[in-house]
Design a protein around this nucleic acid. Sequence first.
DNA 1: TCAAAAGTGTTCTATCTACACCCATGT
DNA 2: ACATGGGTGTAGATAGAACACTTTTGA
Lengths: 221, 221
Amino acid sequence: MRAPDRPPIGEGVSLVAAIVVIFAIIDGALQVLLVHRSAAPERGRWALPGGRWDGTATLEQAATAKLVEETGAHDLYLEQLFTVSHLDATQPGVAVAYFALVEPARVCLRSSDEWVPAWHRVDALPELAFRNNALIAQAVARVRAKLDYTNIAYGLLPDAFTLRELQATYEAVLGTPLDRRNFRKRMLATGLIAATGEQRRDGAHRPALLYAFTTREPVFL
Amino acid sequence: MRAPDRPPIGEGVSLVAAIVVIFAIIDGALQVLLVHRSAAPERGRWALPGGRWDGTATLEQAATAKLVEETGAHDLYLEQLFTVSHLDATQPGVAVAYFALVEPARVCLRSSDEWVPAWHRVDALPELAFRNNALIAQAVARVRAKLDYTNIAYGLLPDAFTLRELQATYEAVLGTPLDRRNFRKRMLATGLIAATGEQRRDGAHRPALLYAFTTREPVFL
DNA sequence: TCAAAAGTGTTCTATCTACACCCATGT
DNA sequence: ACATGGGTGTAGATAGAACACTTTTGA
Protein backbone atom coordinates (compact mmCIF):
# COMPACT_ATOMS: atom_id res chain seq x y z
CA MET A 1 0.00 0.00 0.00
CA ARG A 2 3.01 2.20 -0.11
CA ALA A 3 3.40 3.06 -3.75
CA PRO A 4 0.48 5.26 -4.65
CA ASP A 5 0.80 5.28 -8.46
CA ARG A 6 -2.17 3.53 -10.00
CA PRO A 7 -1.44 0.89 -12.63
CA PRO A 8 -4.20 -0.16 -15.03
CA ILE A 9 -6.36 -2.78 -13.43
CA GLY A 10 -7.35 -5.79 -15.48
CA GLU A 11 -10.61 -7.65 -15.29
CA GLY A 12 -11.13 -9.49 -12.06
CA VAL A 13 -7.68 -8.81 -10.73
CA SER A 14 -6.61 -6.68 -7.82
CA LEU A 15 -3.73 -5.11 -6.07
CA VAL A 16 -2.23 -7.29 -3.37
CA ALA A 17 -0.01 -5.82 -0.70
CA ALA A 18 1.92 -7.38 2.14
CA ILE A 19 2.22 -5.29 5.28
CA VAL A 20 4.10 -6.05 8.45
CA VAL A 21 3.46 -5.15 12.06
CA ILE A 22 6.96 -5.20 13.54
CA PHE A 23 7.15 -5.36 17.31
CA ALA A 24 10.06 -4.81 19.63
CA ILE A 25 10.50 -4.08 23.31
CA ILE A 26 12.15 -0.70 23.57
CA ASP A 27 12.49 1.37 26.73
CA GLY A 28 10.55 -1.30 28.56
CA ALA A 29 7.50 -0.88 26.37
CA LEU A 30 6.02 -2.74 23.43
CA GLN A 31 6.61 -0.64 20.35
CA VAL A 32 5.71 -0.97 16.71
CA LEU A 33 7.63 0.22 13.68
CA LEU A 34 5.81 2.79 11.57
CA VAL A 35 6.80 4.80 8.52
CA HIS A 36 5.85 8.37 7.92
CA ARG A 37 4.11 8.83 4.58
CA SER A 38 5.45 11.75 2.64
CA ALA A 39 3.44 10.92 -0.46
CA ALA A 40 -0.27 10.50 -1.17
CA PRO A 41 -2.45 8.79 -0.29
CA GLU A 42 -2.66 9.41 3.44
CA ARG A 43 0.24 11.79 3.18
CA GLY A 44 1.57 13.03 6.47
CA ARG A 45 0.28 10.07 8.43
CA TRP A 46 2.09 7.19 10.00
CA ALA A 47 1.45 3.77 8.54
CA LEU A 48 2.61 0.20 8.77
CA PRO A 49 5.43 -0.67 6.40
CA GLY A 50 4.42 -2.69 3.40
CA GLY A 51 4.61 -2.98 -0.31
CA ARG A 52 3.00 -4.38 -3.36
CA TRP A 53 3.17 -8.13 -3.87
CA ASP A 54 4.59 -8.94 -7.27
CA GLY A 55 3.59 -12.58 -7.35
CA THR A 56 7.10 -13.85 -7.95
CA ALA A 57 7.35 -15.47 -4.52
CA THR A 58 4.93 -16.55 -1.84
CA LEU A 59 3.26 -13.93 0.28
CA GLU A 60 5.25 -15.04 3.26
CA GLN A 61 8.49 -14.60 1.36
CA ALA A 62 7.35 -11.13 0.31
CA ALA A 63 6.58 -10.23 3.90
CA THR A 64 9.95 -11.59 4.99
CA ALA A 65 11.68 -9.49 2.36
CA LYS A 66 9.84 -6.41 3.54
CA LEU A 67 10.84 -7.19 7.09
CA VAL A 68 14.51 -7.55 6.16
CA GLU A 69 14.32 -4.34 4.16
CA GLU A 70 12.99 -2.45 7.16
CA THR A 71 15.08 -3.94 9.91
CA GLY A 72 18.19 -5.30 8.27
CA ALA A 73 17.76 -8.42 10.37
CA HIS A 74 17.22 -12.00 9.25
CA ASP A 75 15.50 -15.04 10.70
CA LEU A 76 12.89 -13.11 12.60
CA TYR A 77 9.65 -14.47 13.94
CA LEU A 78 6.92 -13.83 11.35
CA GLU A 79 3.31 -14.92 11.40
CA GLN A 80 0.35 -14.12 9.24
CA LEU A 81 -2.28 -12.04 10.96
CA PHE A 82 -5.23 -10.95 8.87
CA THR A 83 -6.21 -9.91 5.39
CA VAL A 84 -8.14 -6.72 4.82
CA SER A 85 -9.78 -5.51 1.66
CA HIS A 86 -10.40 -2.01 0.37
CA LEU A 87 -7.63 -0.60 2.45
CA ASP A 88 -7.28 2.33 0.14
CA ALA A 89 -10.91 2.67 -0.96
CA THR A 90 -9.91 4.07 -4.34
CA GLN A 91 -9.11 0.79 -6.08
CA PRO A 92 -9.87 -2.85 -5.42
CA GLY A 93 -7.12 -4.27 -3.31
CA VAL A 94 -6.30 -6.53 -0.45
CA ALA A 95 -3.56 -6.24 2.10
CA VAL A 96 -2.24 -9.32 3.81
CA ALA A 97 -0.92 -8.33 7.21
CA TYR A 98 1.83 -10.17 9.06
CA PHE A 99 3.35 -9.47 12.39
CA ALA A 100 6.97 -9.91 13.36
CA LEU A 101 8.94 -9.93 16.59
CA VAL A 102 12.42 -8.50 16.66
CA GLU A 103 15.13 -7.94 19.18
CA PRO A 104 15.99 -4.24 18.99
CA ALA A 105 19.73 -4.83 19.21
CA ARG A 106 19.63 -6.62 15.87
CA VAL A 107 17.71 -3.87 14.12
CA CYS A 108 19.21 -1.15 11.98
CA LEU A 109 16.50 1.12 10.62
CA ARG A 110 16.87 2.60 7.16
CA SER A 111 15.43 5.94 6.29
CA SER A 112 14.80 7.19 2.81
CA ASP A 113 13.58 10.60 1.82
CA GLU A 114 10.26 8.99 0.99
CA TRP A 115 9.55 7.62 4.38
CA VAL A 116 11.14 7.76 7.77
CA PRO A 117 10.67 4.81 10.07
CA ALA A 118 10.29 5.20 13.79
CA TRP A 119 9.21 3.15 16.77
CA HIS A 120 5.94 3.99 18.49
CA ARG A 121 4.56 2.69 21.75
CA VAL A 122 1.46 0.61 21.07
CA ASP A 123 -0.31 2.14 24.06
CA ALA A 124 -0.07 5.65 22.63
CA LEU A 125 -0.55 5.52 18.88
CA PRO A 126 -1.79 8.41 16.79
CA GLU A 127 -4.50 7.83 14.23
CA LEU A 128 -2.79 5.92 11.46
CA ALA A 129 -3.26 5.65 7.74
CA PHE A 130 -5.42 2.93 6.19
CA ARG A 131 -7.14 2.01 9.44
CA ASN A 132 -3.88 0.44 10.58
CA ASN A 133 -4.80 1.01 14.23
CA ALA A 134 -7.22 -1.91 14.14
CA LEU A 135 -4.63 -4.21 12.62
CA ILE A 136 -2.11 -3.32 15.27
CA ALA A 137 -4.65 -3.89 18.01
CA GLN A 138 -5.33 -7.31 16.56
CA ALA A 139 -1.62 -8.07 16.39
CA VAL A 140 -1.11 -7.02 19.99
CA ALA A 141 -3.98 -9.25 21.10
CA ARG A 142 -2.48 -12.16 19.20
CA VAL A 143 0.98 -11.73 20.69
CA ARG A 144 -0.46 -11.40 24.18
CA ALA A 145 -2.48 -14.56 23.79
CA LYS A 146 0.42 -16.50 22.33
CA LEU A 147 2.78 -15.57 25.13
CA ASP A 148 0.66 -17.82 27.29
CA TYR A 149 0.94 -21.00 25.32
CA THR A 150 3.94 -20.65 23.02
CA ASN A 151 7.59 -19.70 23.17
CA ILE A 152 7.31 -16.79 20.74
CA ALA A 153 8.96 -14.51 23.27
CA TYR A 154 12.22 -15.82 21.86
CA GLY A 155 11.63 -13.43 18.98
CA LEU A 156 11.91 -10.45 21.29
CA LEU A 157 15.00 -11.53 23.19
CA PRO A 158 18.66 -12.22 22.51
CA ASP A 159 20.07 -15.73 22.69
CA ALA A 160 20.90 -15.44 26.38
CA PHE A 161 18.94 -13.42 28.89
CA THR A 162 18.21 -13.23 32.57
CA LEU A 163 14.90 -14.28 34.00
CA ARG A 164 14.35 -10.70 34.99
CA GLU A 165 14.71 -9.63 31.36
CA LEU A 166 12.31 -12.34 30.27
CA GLN A 167 9.81 -11.17 32.84
CA ALA A 168 10.21 -7.55 31.77
CA THR A 169 9.47 -8.64 28.21
CA TYR A 170 6.30 -10.41 29.29
CA GLU A 171 5.23 -7.44 31.35
CA ALA A 172 5.84 -5.03 28.50
CA VAL A 173 3.75 -7.11 26.11
CA LEU A 174 0.96 -7.88 28.53
CA GLY A 175 0.94 -4.45 30.09
CA THR A 176 0.58 -5.90 33.57
CA PRO A 177 3.08 -6.62 36.33
CA LEU A 178 3.76 -10.26 37.18
CA ASP A 179 4.82 -11.94 40.39
CA ARG A 180 8.52 -12.66 40.17
CA ARG A 181 8.58 -16.01 41.94
CA ASN A 182 5.53 -17.41 40.21
CA PHE A 183 6.82 -16.24 36.86
CA ARG A 184 10.14 -18.00 37.32
CA LYS A 185 8.45 -21.18 38.50
CA ARG A 186 6.04 -21.25 35.59
CA MET A 187 8.66 -20.47 32.97
CA LEU A 188 11.08 -23.11 34.18
CA ALA A 189 8.25 -25.63 34.45
CA THR A 190 7.40 -25.24 30.76
CA GLY A 191 10.80 -26.52 29.71
CA LEU A 192 10.92 -23.82 27.03
CA ILE A 193 13.99 -22.25 28.61
CA ALA A 194 17.08 -23.67 30.26
CA ALA A 195 20.00 -22.19 32.15
CA THR A 196 23.10 -21.76 30.04
CA GLY A 197 25.42 -22.08 33.03
CA GLU A 198 26.75 -18.57 32.40
CA GLN A 199 26.20 -15.62 34.68
CA ARG A 200 25.94 -11.92 34.08
CA ARG A 201 27.43 -9.53 36.59
CA ASP A 202 25.78 -6.17 36.29
CA GLY A 203 26.23 -3.69 39.07
CA ALA A 204 26.53 -3.87 42.80
CA HIS A 205 24.52 -7.00 43.38
CA ARG A 206 24.46 -10.72 42.97
CA PRO A 207 25.01 -11.84 39.36
CA ALA A 208 22.07 -13.30 37.45
CA LEU A 209 22.04 -16.69 35.82
CA LEU A 210 21.58 -16.61 32.08
CA TYR A 211 18.93 -18.64 30.30
CA ALA A 212 18.21 -19.48 26.68
CA PHE A 213 15.21 -20.84 24.85
CA THR A 214 15.71 -24.55 24.31
CA THR A 215 14.45 -24.11 20.77
CA ARG A 216 14.15 -20.97 18.68
CA GLU A 217 11.40 -22.43 16.55
CA PRO A 218 7.74 -21.94 17.44
CA VAL A 219 6.65 -24.40 20.12
CA PHE A 220 3.16 -24.79 21.54
CA LEU A 221 2.50 -25.95 25.06
CA MET B 1 -10.21 -20.42 -7.67
CA ARG B 2 -13.14 -22.07 -9.26
CA ALA B 3 -13.26 -20.55 -12.71
CA PRO B 4 -10.16 -21.73 -14.48
CA ASP B 5 -10.18 -19.44 -17.51
CA ARG B 6 -7.19 -17.10 -17.44
CA PRO B 7 -7.79 -13.40 -17.89
CA PRO B 8 -4.93 -11.14 -18.91
CA ILE B 9 -2.92 -10.11 -15.91
CA GLY B 10 -1.92 -6.49 -15.55
CA GLU B 11 1.28 -5.22 -14.03
CA GLY B 12 1.56 -5.85 -10.33
CA VAL B 13 -1.95 -7.12 -9.92
CA SER B 14 -3.15 -10.60 -9.05
CA LEU B 15 -6.13 -12.83 -8.88
CA VAL B 16 -7.84 -12.79 -5.54
CA ALA B 17 -10.20 -15.56 -4.54
CA ALA B 18 -12.36 -16.08 -1.49
CA ILE B 19 -12.82 -19.66 -0.37
CA VAL B 20 -14.95 -21.02 2.42
CA VAL B 21 -14.54 -24.00 4.71
CA ILE B 22 -18.13 -24.79 5.64
CA PHE B 23 -18.60 -27.02 8.68
CA ALA B 24 -21.65 -28.83 9.93
CA ILE B 25 -22.31 -31.68 12.32
CA ILE B 26 -23.90 -34.46 10.28
CA ASP B 27 -24.41 -38.04 11.42
CA GLY B 28 -22.68 -37.14 14.64
CA ALA B 29 -19.47 -36.17 12.90
CA LEU B 30 -17.84 -32.93 11.87
CA GLN B 31 -18.18 -32.63 8.12
CA VAL B 32 -17.00 -30.12 5.55
CA LEU B 33 -18.69 -29.09 2.32
CA LEU B 34 -16.66 -29.83 -0.80
CA VAL B 35 -17.38 -29.46 -4.50
CA HIS B 36 -16.30 -31.90 -7.14
CA ARG B 37 -14.35 -30.21 -9.90
CA SER B 38 -15.49 -31.27 -13.33
CA ALA B 39 -13.26 -28.72 -15.07
CA ALA B 40 -9.52 -28.05 -15.12
CA PRO B 41 -7.44 -27.31 -13.20
CA GLU B 42 -7.47 -30.11 -10.66
CA ARG B 43 -10.31 -31.75 -12.58
CA GLY B 44 -11.84 -34.72 -10.87
CA ARG B 45 -10.75 -33.68 -7.42
CA TRP B 46 -12.73 -32.36 -4.52
CA ALA B 47 -12.07 -28.80 -3.46
CA LEU B 48 -13.33 -26.11 -1.14
CA PRO B 49 -16.01 -23.88 -2.63
CA GLY B 50 -14.83 -20.46 -3.62
CA GLY B 51 -14.77 -17.91 -6.34
CA ARG B 52 -12.97 -14.94 -7.70
CA TRP B 53 -13.21 -11.70 -5.76
CA ASP B 54 -14.42 -8.90 -7.99
CA GLY B 55 -13.50 -6.04 -5.71
CA THR B 56 -16.99 -4.58 -5.61
CA ALA B 57 -17.51 -5.46 -1.96
CA THR B 58 -15.33 -6.37 0.97
CA LEU B 59 -13.72 -9.77 1.07
CA GLU B 60 -15.93 -10.73 3.96
CA GLN B 61 -19.03 -9.81 1.98
CA ALA B 62 -17.74 -11.87 -0.94
CA ALA B 63 -17.20 -14.84 1.34
CA THR B 64 -20.66 -14.39 2.81
CA ALA B 65 -22.17 -14.32 -0.68
CA LYS B 66 -20.33 -17.52 -1.55
CA LEU B 67 -21.61 -19.09 1.62
CA VAL B 68 -25.21 -18.16 0.84
CA GLU B 69 -24.80 -19.41 -2.69
CA GLU B 70 -23.63 -22.78 -1.44
CA THR B 71 -25.94 -23.30 1.47
CA GLY B 72 -28.99 -21.14 0.84
CA ALA B 73 -28.78 -20.03 4.45
CA HIS B 74 -28.25 -16.54 5.84
CA ASP B 75 -26.70 -15.13 8.99
CA LEU B 76 -24.18 -17.87 9.45
CA TYR B 77 -21.07 -17.73 11.57
CA LEU B 78 -18.16 -16.70 9.36
CA GLU B 79 -14.57 -15.97 10.32
CA GLN B 80 -11.44 -15.32 8.36
CA LEU B 81 -8.91 -18.10 8.57
CA PHE B 82 -5.79 -17.69 6.47
CA THR B 83 -4.55 -16.35 3.18
CA VAL B 84 -2.51 -18.53 0.88
CA SER B 85 -0.62 -17.53 -2.22
CA HIS B 86 0.20 -19.46 -5.37
CA LEU B 87 -2.65 -21.82 -4.82
CA ASP B 88 -2.76 -22.65 -8.47
CA ALA B 89 0.94 -22.31 -9.27
CA THR B 90 0.23 -21.23 -12.85
CA GLN B 91 -0.55 -17.55 -12.18
CA PRO B 92 0.03 -15.13 -9.36
CA GLY B 93 -2.89 -15.28 -7.02
CA VAL B 94 -3.96 -15.31 -3.44
CA ALA B 95 -6.88 -17.08 -1.86
CA VAL B 96 -8.37 -15.73 1.33
CA ALA B 97 -9.90 -18.61 3.25
CA TYR B 98 -12.82 -18.24 5.64
CA PHE B 99 -14.56 -20.83 7.69
CA ALA B 100 -18.26 -21.00 8.46
CA LEU B 101 -20.44 -22.96 10.84
CA VAL B 102 -23.89 -24.05 9.76
CA GLU B 103 -26.74 -25.98 11.18
CA PRO B 104 -27.48 -28.75 8.65
CA ALA B 105 -31.26 -28.31 8.93
CA ARG B 106 -30.98 -24.83 7.46
CA VAL B 107 -28.88 -25.94 4.51
CA CYS B 108 -30.16 -26.68 1.04
CA LEU B 109 -27.29 -27.67 -1.24
CA ARG B 110 -27.40 -26.64 -4.88
CA SER B 111 -25.83 -28.75 -7.55
CA SER B 112 -24.91 -27.54 -10.98
CA ASP B 113 -23.55 -29.63 -13.80
CA GLU B 114 -20.20 -27.95 -13.22
CA TRP B 115 -19.76 -28.99 -9.64
CA VAL B 116 -21.59 -31.20 -7.26
CA PRO B 117 -21.35 -30.33 -3.58
CA ALA B 118 -21.22 -32.98 -0.89
CA TRP B 119 -20.41 -33.29 2.79
CA HIS B 120 -17.24 -35.09 3.81
CA ARG B 121 -16.14 -36.15 7.26
CA VAL B 122 -13.05 -34.18 8.25
CA ASP B 123 -11.46 -37.29 9.73
CA ALA B 124 -11.53 -39.13 6.40
CA LEU B 125 -10.77 -36.69 3.62
CA PRO B 126 -9.32 -37.67 0.27
CA GLU B 127 -6.45 -35.70 -1.18
CA LEU B 128 -8.00 -32.42 -2.25
CA ALA B 129 -7.26 -29.88 -4.95
CA PHE B 130 -5.05 -26.85 -4.29
CA ARG B 131 -3.63 -28.22 -1.05
CA ASN B 132 -6.99 -27.64 0.57
CA ASN B 133 -6.31 -30.39 3.12
CA ALA B 134 -3.96 -28.13 5.04
CA LEU B 135 -6.48 -25.30 5.14
CA ILE B 136 -9.16 -27.59 6.45
CA ALA B 137 -6.85 -28.93 9.12
CA GLN B 138 -6.15 -25.36 10.19
CA ALA B 139 -9.84 -24.55 10.26
CA VAL B 140 -10.58 -27.61 12.38
CA ALA B 141 -7.86 -26.65 14.82
CA ARG B 142 -9.29 -23.14 15.08
CA VAL B 143 -12.83 -24.33 15.72
CA ARG B 144 -11.64 -26.80 18.33
CA ALA B 145 -9.68 -24.14 20.14
CA LYS B 146 -12.51 -21.63 20.02
CA LEU B 147 -15.04 -24.05 21.45
CA ASP B 148 -13.13 -23.68 24.70
CA TYR B 149 -13.35 -19.96 25.12
CA THR B 150 -16.17 -18.71 22.90
CA ASN B 151 -19.81 -19.47 22.16
CA ILE B 152 -19.26 -20.23 18.48
CA ALA B 153 -21.05 -23.56 18.91
CA TYR B 154 -24.23 -21.56 18.39
CA GLY B 155 -23.39 -21.65 14.71
CA LEU B 156 -23.74 -25.42 14.62
CA LEU B 157 -26.99 -25.70 16.57
CA PRO B 158 -30.62 -24.65 16.21
CA ASP B 159 -32.11 -21.98 18.45
CA ALA B 160 -33.20 -24.49 21.08
CA PHE B 161 -31.36 -27.68 21.91
CA THR B 162 -30.86 -30.13 24.72
CA LEU B 163 -27.69 -30.27 26.73
CA ARG B 164 -27.12 -33.70 25.30
CA GLU B 165 -27.22 -32.28 21.78
CA LEU B 166 -24.82 -29.53 22.77
CA GLN B 167 -22.47 -32.10 24.22
CA ALA B 168 -22.71 -34.26 21.12
CA THR B 169 -21.75 -31.22 19.06
CA TYR B 170 -18.71 -30.58 21.21
CA GLU B 171 -17.71 -34.21 21.05
CA ALA B 172 -18.07 -34.31 17.28
CA VAL B 173 -15.87 -31.25 16.85
CA LEU B 174 -13.27 -32.23 19.42
CA GLY B 175 -13.27 -35.87 18.50
CA THR B 176 -13.19 -36.93 22.14
CA PRO B 177 -15.89 -38.01 24.59
CA LEU B 178 -16.69 -35.68 27.47
CA ASP B 179 -17.99 -36.31 30.96
CA ARG B 180 -21.67 -35.51 30.98
CA ARG B 181 -21.92 -33.97 34.43
CA ASN B 182 -18.81 -31.87 34.17
CA PHE B 183 -19.86 -30.70 30.75
CA ARG B 184 -23.26 -29.52 31.98
CA LYS B 185 -21.72 -27.82 34.98
CA ARG B 186 -19.13 -26.02 32.91
CA MET B 187 -21.57 -24.94 30.21
CA LEU B 188 -24.10 -23.57 32.62
CA ALA B 189 -21.38 -21.84 34.60
CA THR B 190 -20.27 -19.88 31.53
CA GLY B 191 -23.62 -18.15 31.27
CA LEU B 192 -23.48 -18.59 27.51
CA ILE B 193 -26.61 -20.71 27.54
CA ALA B 194 -29.85 -20.57 29.50
CA ALA B 195 -32.86 -22.84 29.84
CA THR B 196 -35.80 -21.80 27.72
CA GLY B 197 -38.30 -23.37 30.08
CA GLU B 198 -39.52 -25.69 27.33
CA GLN B 199 -39.03 -29.41 27.33
CA ARG B 200 -38.64 -31.93 24.57
CA ARG B 201 -40.22 -35.36 24.95
CA ASP B 202 -38.47 -37.81 22.72
CA GLY B 203 -39.05 -41.50 23.33
CA ALA B 204 -39.61 -43.65 26.31
CA HIS B 205 -37.68 -41.63 28.83
CA ARG B 206 -37.66 -38.46 30.84
CA PRO B 207 -38.03 -35.32 28.70
CA ALA B 208 -35.04 -33.03 28.33
CA LEU B 209 -35.00 -29.35 29.15
CA LEU B 210 -34.29 -27.11 26.21
CA TYR B 211 -31.57 -24.47 26.26
CA ALA B 212 -30.62 -21.58 24.02
CA PHE B 213 -27.55 -19.44 23.64
CA THR B 214 -28.09 -16.20 25.50
CA THR B 215 -26.58 -14.37 22.56
CA ARG B 216 -26.05 -15.51 19.00
CA GLU B 217 -23.20 -13.12 18.43
CA PRO B 218 -19.60 -14.14 19.09
CA VAL B 219 -18.76 -13.91 22.79
CA PHE B 220 -15.39 -14.59 24.40
CA LEU B 221 -15.04 -15.90 27.90
C1' DT C 1 -42.33 -53.11 35.61
C1' DC C 2 -38.92 -52.16 32.67
C1' DA C 3 -35.90 -49.86 29.55
C1' DA C 4 -33.80 -45.60 28.31
C1' DA C 5 -32.09 -41.15 28.64
C1' DA C 6 -32.29 -36.90 31.95
C1' DG C 7 -30.86 -34.86 35.87
C1' DT C 8 -27.91 -34.06 39.98
C1' DG C 9 -23.12 -33.50 44.11
C1' DT C 10 -19.02 -34.74 46.26
C1' DT C 11 -14.25 -35.94 46.69
C1' DC C 12 -9.81 -35.66 45.15
C1' DT C 13 -6.16 -33.67 42.62
C1' DA C 14 -3.64 -30.22 40.29
C1' DT C 15 -2.92 -25.59 39.43
C1' DC C 16 -2.69 -20.74 40.41
C1' DT C 17 -2.12 -16.94 43.73
C1' DA C 18 -0.26 -14.44 47.41
C1' DC C 19 3.49 -13.47 50.04
C1' DA C 20 8.90 -12.53 52.90
C1' DC C 21 13.41 -13.64 53.65
C1' DC C 22 18.38 -14.74 52.69
C1' DC C 23 22.29 -14.41 49.04
C1' DA C 24 26.05 -12.55 46.29
C1' DT C 25 28.17 -8.70 44.69
C1' DG C 26 30.30 -3.64 44.13
C1' DT C 27 31.15 0.47 46.38
C1' DA D 1 28.66 -2.16 56.20
C1' DC D 2 25.29 -1.31 53.15
C1' DA D 3 22.58 -0.91 49.14
C1' DT D 4 21.00 -3.43 45.15
C1' DG D 5 18.87 -6.78 42.60
C1' DG D 6 19.01 -12.32 42.46
C1' DG D 7 17.29 -16.31 44.17
C1' DT D 8 14.06 -19.44 46.76
C1' DG D 9 9.33 -22.18 49.34
C1' DT D 10 4.84 -22.64 51.46
C1' DA D 11 0.00 -22.19 52.49
C1' DG D 12 -4.58 -21.17 50.88
C1' DA D 13 -7.83 -20.86 47.19
C1' DT D 14 -9.56 -22.17 42.92
C1' DA D 15 -10.54 -24.91 39.09
C1' DG D 16 -10.68 -29.36 36.83
C1' DA D 17 -11.36 -34.59 36.87
C1' DA D 18 -13.38 -38.73 38.35
C1' DC D 19 -17.31 -40.99 39.55
C1' DA D 20 -23.06 -43.46 40.71
C1' DC D 21 -27.57 -43.04 41.78
C1' DT D 22 -32.41 -41.21 41.33
C1' DT D 23 -36.09 -39.35 38.12
C1' DT D 24 -39.34 -39.24 34.45
C1' DT D 25 -41.41 -41.03 30.71
C1' DG D 26 -43.40 -44.56 26.96
C1' DA D 27 -44.16 -49.04 26.00
